[in-house]
Each structure stands twice: as structure tokens, then as C-alpha cells.
């Protein structure tokens, strides 16, 4: 375990660094992108690259600190479970937001290259 600890620490710090970078880029993207639907892609970077990855990194760092004793497994385990929750729930939030914004017309999809959903709604295939 002693030999593994520095490796875990380095991997953890690299993952946290990636997370920080992704958060900054996602913030820039939030500002630059033109409308709600495109901003959702920046939000995805925020959720996966900016939250999921650094939480895993924090768990690895916690695992590598032996001074914490038994408590470090609690920290790491809570981190892993949180990361899995995030992985399952973050896309659901994005999807439900996108769906609600689209059908309530709260956000307008412009600029757009193509909108096949609108065409299907107009044809009466989908009633929402």
C-alpha cells in the first residue's frame, strides 16, 4: 500500500486539475454560446469533466492519506457513491430541462441547422 500511495495521490491531483480546467472552459462556454440548448453542452462538460472527474480524484487522494486511518475509506466511499449518483442523475436533469424548455417554448432554438422534432410535431406524429 505504501508504494501505491504516491501513485494514487498523483492520479488524484491530475484528475482534480482536469476538473478545474473543465470548469473554467465550461464557464467560458456558458458565456459564449448563443442559446439555452447549446449551453446545455457546456453544462455537460461542467457535470462530467468538471464534477464527476474531480470527485473521483478527491476520493483517490483521500485513499492515499494514511494519517486519516479508517476514516479515509469513509471519505473515499462517499466520494465514489456521490460520483455514481452524479453520473446517473446529471443527464436526467439535462434531458428534462431540454424537454421542458423545448415544449414550453421558453427557449427558442435559434440558430438551427435542422429541427426534425418540430417537423414531426407539425405532422401531428407527436402530441405534447
Amino acid at each position: 500500500m505504501n508504494l501505491l500511495n504516491p501513485v494514487l495521490t498523483i492520479i488524484g491531483y491530475v484528475l482534480v486539475g482536469i476538473g478545474a480546467f473543465c470548469q473554467v472552459v465550461a464557464g467560458i462556454g456558458m458565456n459564449r454560446f448563443p442559446n439555452f440548448f447549446v449551453r446545455l453542452h457546456a453544462a455537460t462538460i461542467c457535470a462530467i469533466g468538471g464534477s464527476f472527474v474531480p470527485i473521483i480524484g478527491c476520493s483517490l487522494i483521500a485513499l492515499s492519506i494514511e494519517e486519516f486511518g479508517v476514516i479515509r475509506f469513509f471519505l473515499a466511499g462517499a466520494g465514489f457513491v456521490t460520483a455514481v449518483f452524479l453520473l446517473i442523475l446529471a443527464p436526467v436533469g439535462s434531458h428534462l430541462l431540454a424537454k421542458a424548455a423545448y415544449f414550453s417554448k421558453a427557449a427558442v432554438l435559434y440558430p438551427k441547422a435542422v429541427d426534425l422534432l418540430e417537423e414531426d410535431v407539425e405532422r401531428g406524429e407527436i402530441r405534447e
Binding site: T44, A90, H95, Y102
Partner: peptide
């Protein structure tokens, strides 16, 4: 659907 949404660049709308 979750895999698609979780990869940046694609979001499942419906």
C-alpha cells in the same frame, strides 16, 4: 439516452 446526454455535444431532447 444517458450515454448520449453525458457526452458533451449531444443532448437527448425527447
Amino acid at each position: 439516452a444517458n450515454s448520449i446526454t453525458n457526452t458533451p455535444g449531444t443532448v437527448t431532447v425527447y
